[in-house]
């Protein structure tokens, strides 16, 4: 047998094939994700209205944006929706996961059942909940027909409460997913840790609160990341459920951006709001990715 000491020799195809195969998707991502981000960033500094133009306007569009009451409603709504949605989905999901972890019968079927909402698109969720929450059609009418004629549940058409209907639908959609993530984490916990805690005299809630859930910190953070970016990007759910209404009471930044840029002919303001959203997502995701990647390099 002859031995060859030196770099392995590849043919032309071996060397170029991987690059060739990756090139189209690389190119598409480069143009349609990063290219358009840059283009949008540039547009936010121009005087673009109905159609894009390239006349430099400095920070004028941002000034307009920050002076817009509707934008601040959208930001406030994002804050309400984001915190309640993340907190609610997390709480419901963890609760379901802990219950399912008690070696219940038919666990597989239940798990699938709870996970199903995730298989629906937000459009379907939004539409279904729109019917259910419609005072003349859904829950309110049902309870009134049962005889409780004083019952009202009109959050969907109440400008003060409309954003909370989005929270309800969002939690319904996502808590099953949170449950699945935490259930997987719970299954990774050594059984004998729970036994040891039982012998130590801890009650079941205390075992979960003091021992099991702290051990699931990584799962907690991944889930937080996923839910946070769903919350910030949320567009379709609001569109299908409330359409941003009544009025613009349930607007979120994504719907604000869409309507200013594409229906109200203020492309510059839309671009500026899109950049604000990008910055928000980046502010959350970049530190997370940084710590994750650094962690894996050390580990």
């Amino acid at each position: 047998m002859t031995s060859y000491n030196g770099p392995a020799q590849y043919g032309f195809a071996e060397r170029w094939l991987p690059r060739l195969v990756l090139a189209p998707s690389f190119l598409l991502t480069l143009v349609f994700v990063y290219g358009f981000i840059l283009w949008n960033g540039y547009l936010s500094f121009t005087t673009s209205r109905l159609l894009p133009n390239y006349e430099w306007a400095g920070l004028a569009q941002y000034t307009t944006l920050f002076a817009n009451e509707r934008w601040w409603v959208a930001v406030k709504n994002l804050f309400i929706f984001g915190s309640l949605f993340i907190g609610g989905a997390m709480a419901v999901g963890i609760f379901l996961a802990v219950l399912l972890d008690q070696k219940v019968r038919q666990e597989g079927a239940l798990r699938t059942l709870y996970l199903y909402p995730m298989a629906l698109s937000f459009i379907v969720t939004g539409t279904a909940w729109k019917w259910m929450l419609n005072p003349g059609l859904g829950l309110e009418k049902l309870v009134q027909d049962w005889g409780f004629t004083n019952f009202t549940f009109d959050w969907l058409v109440n400008p003060d409460m409309s954003i909370y209907t989005v929270v309800i639908a969002g939690i319904w959609q996502s808590s099953g997913f949170v449950m699945a993530l935490f259930l997987a984490g719970l299954r990774g916990i050594d059984d004998s840790i729970i036994k040891a805690a039982q012998i130590d005299g801890a009650s079941l809630p205390r075992i979960y609160w003091k021992i099991v859930l702290p051990a699931l910190r990584p799962v907690f953070f991944s889930t937080l990341m996923i839910l946070a970016h769903i919350a910030i990007k949320s567009f379709d759910l609001v569109m299908a459920l409330t359409g941003g209404g009544p009025g613009f009471s349930s607007d979120v930044p994504a719907t604000f951006m869409y309507s200013t840029a594409f229906t109200r002919g203020q492309m510059g303001v839309g671009a500026a709001s899109a950049m604000m959203m990008l910055m928000t997502v980046a502010a959350i995701v970049v530190p997370y990715l940084y710590s994750e990647l650094r962690g894996s390099r050390n580990g």
């Binding site: 004998s192 840790i193 036994k195 040891a196 702290p214």
Partner: peptide, 10 residues
């Protein structure tokens, strides 16, 4: 316990 069952976060 065989796996020691120490509480990992403490």
């Amino acid at each position: 316990f065989q796996s020691y069952a120490l509480y990992p976060t403490m």
